[in-house]
């Protein structure tokens, strides 16, 4: 129960953060990426706000033997930079530049009853599905 409450609160905080920073505003995102046009560098400050908090806290938290409400930390495995990372990140960036949405803002935008968010969430899941069909061994 506690676990569920904390998870919901974390989602709400994240959603408010994406709203306040305007990451959920696709024009703001595209203007951030438009370095030769109407460039608006605001969104780099989202990372500058998030990273110091996360860097300091992660370092301290990962010294613990376990999280407070679970038996172990579930971190990504230590993989190296490989072809799928480079290709996947480039494909992602192309889609981000075409749409102005990454997955977090796409879901979060549903809270504004935005039609674009519905299109984004469906097409992102379609991308997941096709990738999983081709590359995931069941």
């Amino acid at each position: 129960m506690k676990h569920n409450t904390i998870t919901l609160i974390c989602g709400i905080l994240f959603g408010i953060g994406l709203s306040l920073s305007q990451m959920i505003n696709p024009n703001k995102v595209l203007n951030f990426l438009d370095i030769t046009g109407a460039w608006d560098p605001s969104l780099i400050f989202v990372m500058l706000g998030a990273l110091p908090v996360a860097m300091i806290s992660f370092k301290a938290i990962l010294k613990r033997p376990a999280p407070i409400l679970a038996n172990q930390f579930q971190l990504a495995g230590k993989l190296s930079v490989n072809t799928s990372l480079i290709l996947g990140a480039s494909i992602f960036g192309i889609g981000w530049g075409m749409s102005g949405y990454c997955p977090g803002p796409a879901v979060t935008g549903l809270g504004l009853l935005s039609f674009e968010s519905v299109v984004m969430v469906v097409s992102i899941y379609l991308g997941f599905f096709v990738y999983n069909r081709i590359f995931e061994k069941k």
């Binding site: 994240f14 990372m47 998030a50 990273l51 996360a54 860097m55 992660f58 990962l62 971190l75 990504a76 993989l79 799928s84 990372l85 290709l87 996947g88 990140a89 480039s90 494909i91 992602f92 960036g93 192309i94 889609g95 981000w96 530049g97 075409m98 749409s99 102005g100 949405y101 990454c102 997955p103 977090g104 796409a106 674009e116 299109v119 984004m120 969430v121 469906v122 097409s123 992102i124 899941y125 379609l126 991308g127 997941f128 096709v130 990738y131 999983n132 590359f135």
Partner: peptide, 30 residues
């Protein structure tokens, strides 16, 4: 443009094993 972009975002995020939150925030913080 929106729908094709969304498809590529989903496909690319799976292939890269993460998106801006996972890599850009959590991964860099780590």
């Amino acid at each position: 443009l929106l729908g094709t972009g969304g498809f590529l975002v989903g496909f690319g995020a799976r292939m890269a094993n993460g998106c801006i939150s996972g890599h850009g925030i959590c991964g860099i913080a780590n």
